[in-house]
Design a protein around this nucleic acid. Structure first.
Length: 511
RNA sequence: GGUCCGUUCGUCUAGGGGUUAGGACACCAGAUUUUCAUUCUGGUAACACGGGUUCGAUUCCCGUACGGACUACCA
């Protein structure tokens, strides 16, 4: 097997889509598994779609998820430059070779002429009007124009494109690693533009040339490229690179969670989950989009989740570190069908990874949130808080967002719980409990509990019946972490104060 | 419309000519927890349809339906 060299080749047209991250991940896994190289190439041949900041974004996103680049943008390497806009002369050379050898030709048709041709074909009943082996005969190109006219047009700097001369009758076959043999008849492929009139290559040419020059062994990309893959095969053939053609693997698409269709930013907005790895502000529209990172997803969890979107190890193991993914990964186990994006599963993975962390690590998250809020908190207290809350947290920010009552006394009380649990028995117990606490000097959870037991026993009321009322008065809510632990954390004085406030505030609700 | 690709529980999927079609998420129920959650146990739930081939098809073949991608001097 030849050296594994894979590339991730995004266009800097905006934030990197989460599907792009998955594509990058699969490439990366293959590279690492076979001690190969991962190359980052920027496909910026469309200057009209270039978005400033996108390149940085791509690099930062990859770095965040732990995909390291061996060669390419930001790293350099033997095949530099890795930005296609900086490789123009290279493409021109190969395009010229295709023309010289009769596999491509100059075309001088204007946009209007192309539109007219398509219109003509449509009215004639042709379903998909193409610039191909049949229609090119009627167009203005170096195949139909006299040689001297072509030369004078070129000399006069008339805008032109270079098109591939696709044969009329030929079966183009390709063996995709995921889909098996795919066969397309050449009559279905049109004479694709290889070089645009601005001197830039199109994706097709640049892609094939670079993959060859950079000695790419495997092309792992989205399924949207499958229809043009036969065209690429043709290019390899005409350039004489058939023997060095990389192996193709076309990945199934990421679909929207409900209904049908490709996952888009719009769906993500509607469903309330991110679709980009990092926060992104479009420099042109100033439109902001949330990132997985800023939404609280851990990079390891996102990677694990993404890896399982279209691939599985064939075992029941689900939690995989990057290293384990590298070891287990194989292209053969990538599925064929499109995959719906289920954010629930992503959250589940996040939770798994969060729980696996030590309380010390989790305390850092809480402390960071508190700093942002301008709240100071001793580290040992943060560790305690995190310990009682970790079982229910999905995101690091949950420690703060769901634990605010640990820092502030509640001023409002959940109404359904008030209606259900705030009754005469409860107030009786709480009153007595508060009195008992006043005489306590310690703030140990077990003492809180035994005191409560004592009080309820004396009054002849079951402890369980009033616990919710106690929780309500201390936290304002009917659900939350272990109540005794909460009381231990906030301390006796605070508990006494809060019970007093609740007794005072909720007294009218008791009929 | 044309070309190409696809189709196993709601979702991600395993499997593969004869299986009680397995797992995970989600959901529901029970147990434990004198509270919430965790945890544990259990449950509901799938081979798109129609023809072949075969003793037998969810699995192989062909159609149909449905879905998707592509159909630019965008990638």
């Amino acid at each position: 097997m030849k050296d594994v060299r894979v590339r991730f080749a995004p266009s800097p047209t905006g934030a990197l889509h989460i599907g792009g991250v998955r594509t990058a991940l699969y490439n990366y896994l293959l590279a690492r598994k076979y001690n190969g190289n991962m190359i980052l190439r920027i496909e910026d041949t469309d200057q009209t779609r270039y978005v400033p900041g996108a390149e940085d974004y791509i690099q930062q996103a990859l770095q965040w998820v732990g995909i390291t680049i061996d060669e390419g943008l930001g790293v350099g390497g033997p095949h530099a430059p890795y930005r296609q806009s900086e490789r123009k002369p290279i493409y021109r050379e190969y395009a010229q070779r295709l023309v010289d050898e009769g596999n491509a030709y100059y075309a001088f048709d204007t946009e209007q002429e192309l539109d007219a041709m398509r219109e003509r074909l449509r009215t004639a009943g042709v379903n998909s009007p193409q610039y191909n082996s049949i229609t090119r005969i009627q167009m203005r190109n170096s195949l139909t124009l006299p040689v001297d006219e072509v030369e004078s047009l070129l000399k006069a700097k008339t805008p032109f494109v270079i098109r591939l001369k696709v044969p009329r009758k030929e079966e183009v076959r390709l063996n995709d690693m995921i889909r098996g043999w795919v066969m397309v008849h050449s009559s279905q492929i049109d004479d694709k533009v290889l070089m645009k009139s601005d001197g830039m290559p199109t994706y097709h040419l640049a892609n094939v040339v670079d993959d060859y020059l950079m000695k790419i062994s495997h092309v792992i990309r989205g399924e949207e490229w499958l229809p043009s893959a036969p065209l690429h095969v043709l290019l390899y053939k005409y350039l004489g690179w058939e023997a060095d053609m990389p192996q193709f693997a076309h990945l199934p698409l990421l679909l929207k969670p409900s209904g049908d269709g490709k996952l888009s930013k719009r769906d993500a907005d509607q469903m309330g989950f991110p679709i980009f790895p990092l926060d992104w502000t479009d420099p042109n529209t100033n439109e902001k989009a949330a990132g997985f990172r800023e939404s609280g997803y851990l990079a390891e969890a996102l990677v694990n989740f993404l890896a399982f979107l279209g691939w599985n190890p064939g075992t029941t193991q689900e939690i995989f570190s990057m290293d384990e993914l590298v070891a287990a990964f194989s292209v053969e186990r990538i599925g064929k069908a499109g995959t719906k994006f289920d954010i629930h599963k992503a959250q589940w993975f996040n939770q798994q990874y969060l729980r696996a962390k030590t309380n010390e690590e989790l305390a850092d998250y809480l402390l960071a949130s508190l700093t942002l809020e301008g709240i100071t908190c001793p580290r040992d207290k943060a560790v305690k808080i995190v310990a009682v809350m970790k079982e229910r947290a999905v995101f690091p920010k949950d420690f703060w967002e769901q634990g605010q009552f640990l820092f502030f006394a509640p001023t409002t009380f959940e109404e359904t719980v008030v209606n259900k649990k705030w009754n005469e028995d409860a107030t009786k117990v709480l009153l007595a409990y508060r009195e008992a606490l006043l005489h306590l000097s310690t703030s140990d959870a077990t003492v809180f509990k035994s005191t409560l037991d004592e009080v309820t026993h004396q009054l002849g009321i079951g402890t369980g019946k009033i616990l919710q009322a106690l929780r309500l008065s201390v936290t304002g809510a009917g659900a939350g972490p272990d109540l005794m632990m909460i009381m231990e954390i906030i301390g006796r004085d605070e508990v006494v104060k809060r019970i007093g406030y609740a007794l005072e505030h909720l007294k009218l609700k008791v009929a």
